[in-house]
Design a protein around this nucleic acid. Structure first.
Lengths: 135, 135
DNA sequence: CTCTAAAACGTTATATTATTACATACTGTT
DNA sequence: AACAGTATGTAATAATATAACGTTTTAGAG
């Protein structure tokens, strides 16, 4: 039996950029990433966008569409970039990945009336986080 | 009893841009809109973006975040721009507003574990529409 | 009607986000 | 070694969005 290595190894640029996003407590924008990895030899936007595209594709990171920013996947190396949900505080811009079994089951089962077949969804909740409500 | 006119009247630019989006069968991008209303005297991006912002705010249109494009609200002048859901065909890029009572109830009731208060959500489903599945 | 504040407008410039295009190099099979 | 697929580096440019002004219009209060 051949060793099916599910764990794809990342390229140099992919790893550098994933490391940065992983360490960050907040979503990072492409150009913020660029500025932060220039010392590591990544000098131009396409290098960043290519790595980001790949990382999104393999589920290591997610794009927060409403913010054009990227976060690391917290769901133990998420195979399910097919089913993403985030909570976004409109005051402090804190973003968290929502992981709720009921929610993802409900949405994954959801069927369109017009006969579309869904492969994937992305859900973004907006509101105020605990801390910002108090202020 | 004073007449509470819920029906806000749109400004000239807002009306021009809403008309265009309304007539369109597909989501329109800001610069596509700009090019199409230049003959009507709207010449610069800020004019378009201002009108779009307002129209989104009052629920006449919605932004498809993953596409940076705008569609008219089909839910009878949607007060509920608080709860939007769309289906997006990844092949032909057709976009439809999903209106499903169960879905919107479920999501509107959804409560965050971390104590966030949600005011609004946006959900985008991706897949293949009926027609594109056949091809 | 007149005054006022809010909203909308027009304009120029610029910031931010993302892609095209092309030449080169690396990686892992056969 | 040869090939295919993936990744790289680089320059240029496209596409999306906002800042910052000053002016004009609109709707309501008095």
């Amino acid at each position: 039996m051949t060793k099916m290595n599910k764990e794809r190894s990342l390229s140099k640029n992919q790893q550098i950029i994933l490391d940065l996003i992983d360490k960050s407590s907040e979503p990072l924008k492409a150009y913020t990433i660029l500025f932060n990895v220039q010392k590591k030899g990544i000098k131009a936007p396409p290098q960043v966008y290519r790595a980001l595209d790949k990382l999104v594709e393999i589920g290591k990171i997610h794009k927060i569409e409403s913010r054009n920013a990227f976060v690391a996947c917290k769901n133990s190396n998420c195979e399910i970039s097919k089913a993403t949900a985030f909570s976004i505080c409109e005051s402090c811009e804190e973003v968290d990945e929502v992981s709720d079994t009921k929610l993802s089951k409900f949405l994954s089962k959801f069927n369109d009336k017009k006969g579309m077949t869904f492969k994937r969804f992305n859900l973004e909740f907006f509101g105020l986080c605990k801390r910002c409500k108090i202020k």
